[in-house]
Nucleic acid binder design. Structure first.
Lengths: 330, 330
DNA sequence: AATAAATATGAAACTGTTTTCATATTTATT
DNA sequence: AATAAATATGAAAACAGTTTCATATTTATT
């Protein structure tokens, strides 16, 4: 590996001048600049990032915390984040928090030791009070998750609206008995809380009273969806429609329903959340709430880089558009 | 952020001794070691990785090159790699090569500039001759992809066998007209070449002649699968079964077939590759070739770390088990 | 008791950059 | 023509560690 000194020697100039060329500083004559560029090319020179970091701080690396990368919603988010970051000259380090507080903390520590310039959190395991101190070491932005009193930029959706338009759609289709599957617990704060609120609001407006038996909490996977359907099948008074927190749960419900001879949407209407590719592959195709995942990833990177160059800029909330995609399952 | 000098000052010892404690070198007295440890804790000191790297130390970061993270096969692979790496104290940097030779090269450069200790490549865009020089800067292991003459560890499957058992299964079910969808071109080298070989071998053994019209090359996505089915529907002499290179293509084919009123597997049998969760969600559930993705990721990390500690150890080939999972689509 | 080996410690050099400071040269302004 | 400002350049310091080398002290061996 050649160093800046080699380039300096070959071009007959000082390290300082070479550094100026590398960093596009003014006050380097045309001829010398060309000399340096030529020498760099000849040696196949690349600046050593470790040395630059040691001096300047920037690592051009962003950390992304996701719960699980195999969840398509998050793999699409990481995809978008990685692409945007690459175009802006950043690398992406991933961490799957995996519902593990320790692991989340280990990862946040990378910020402290300047291994990453900033961190995009798409999930939060620890209390905000334990995360908050890390903001002293570099920007943290929240994407998809949010915390009311956190003083950091947040890229989010109007989750409440998402649930609202979904449930309203079911009501407009004539349903009165509407079940509900959510990720978190029913009265938590954050994203799930908002969705719950939207669900309640839509029902309330239509004068429908919630049947607590039809509310399923802490549901995530396809398998969870299947279990939910099994429970529904055993009920005397069954819901005629179900609003879910992800396309996967919806898929699980649909599969199990079909397994038992139910017709979707006639016997039971199903609505998903996310609009993953899966939604189009189910039979019947899934009505769902589209989350603009690409936009969210892109915005998160933009915001974090902006904060990197502008550390005084603090909290800002970016709300992305959310919409209903009507297909055949409702 | 406190530095090693601060720790030295506080403990009344030299930077050297502190460094020795950090790196667990011998020849530090018990008492002094304790002093240093105490001072480190008191200051909340963490060594600056940039400085360590500059001195030619390990970065405890592994790079992973995938074509696209949103492809479930690769997101599962990354999942397994990340988990294993974390347990061994490594971080994971991801790069989506995205069929972009430039991008792959940019990423390989991280090895040259010691931003990653080693790189796991799950896809190869450039010719091996351009990748090979990078092996001088740190270990590269090939996972899932492979190159015959490359002198690096490879974690692979017997792809030929995979295709062979799949096609043979179709023949045993009574099919003679078997179409074939592959990722690469038909006569390339690497993974696809092997599968092609398995396909040919199975047919040959059964005395079946390949109809070139039924061979579809360069197929990857769900959408591709749909297009393939459209082409098949227009044929006078249609295949009765199709072997595909991924569950997604299989899914696309199945969806399109059902759209046009065909019954799977009666009118057309379909077999996938990978055994992704999707395979169980399709209706009918998809017969497919299972790739042990978790094992592959785990092994890749193990091997690369072993190479890191043992640089002289060169090529080694690890072949993982592959098996047929019979469901309802055949 | 004399010598060799093992243990313990720190000063200084080194890693490859960027930044500061000093200084020389050129151009613009009065 | 004299002075100020802009342009151009390099030597040396700084970043935060690790490694080399020198040296002092203990312990083991003859």
């Amino acid at each position: 590996m050649s160093t800046i000194s080699d380039v300096a020697k070959l071009s007959g100039l000082s390290k300082t001048t070479v550094s100026r060329v590398i960093n596009n500083h003014p006050y380097v004559s045309k001829e010398n600049k060309e000399q340096v560029l030529k020498a760099m090319k000849e040696l196949g020179y690349t600046p050593n990032p470790a040395a630059r970091r040691l001096r300047g701080q920037l690592t051009t690396t962003l950390g992304v915390i996701v719960p699980r990368i195999v969840n398509p919603f998050f793999s699409y988010l990481v995809n978008s984040i990685e692409q945007t970051a690459y175009n802006k000259g950043y690398q992406v380090l991933i961490c799957q928090s995996n519902e593990d507080k320790e692991k989340e903390l280990t990862f946040l520590n990378l910020l402290k030791t300047k291994q990453v310039d900033g961190i995009i959190m798409t999930a939060i395991e620890n209390d905000w009070s334990v995360i908050e101190p890390f903001t002293n070491y570099g920007p943290i932005v929240l994407c998809n998750e949010y915390v009311n009193y956190a003083d950091v930029p947040m890229i989010r959706l109007n989750q409440s609206k998402g649930a609202y338009i979904g449930v309203k759609h079911l009501i407009e289709r004539g349903h009165q008995k509407i079940a509900y599957c959510t990720g978190g617990l029913f009265d938590e704060q954050g994203k799930d809380k908002d969705r719950n609120h939207g669900y309640q609001k839509a029902l309330q407006e239509a004068g429908i009273v919630i049947n607590p038996k039809w509310v399923f909490v802490n549901q995530h996977s396809i398998e969870d969806g299947k279990q939910v359907m099994k429970q529904i099948l055993e009920m005397e008074d069954r819901p005629t429609a179900v609003f879910t927190g992800s396309d996967e749960i919806a898929g699980g419900i649909m599969i199990e329903a079909k397994e038992h001879g139910l017709i979707v949407p006639d016997d039971i209407a199903i609505i998903g959340f996310d609009d993953q590719p899966l939604a189009e592959m189910l039979d019947p195709k899934l009505t769902t709430i589209r989350q603009p995942v690409d936009q969210m990833g892109e915005k998160s990177v933009e915001v974090i880089i902006k904060r990197l160059n502008n550390p005084e800029m603090k909290m800002e909330i970016y709300e992305m558009p959310i919409e209903l995609v009507v297909r055949k399952s409702t």
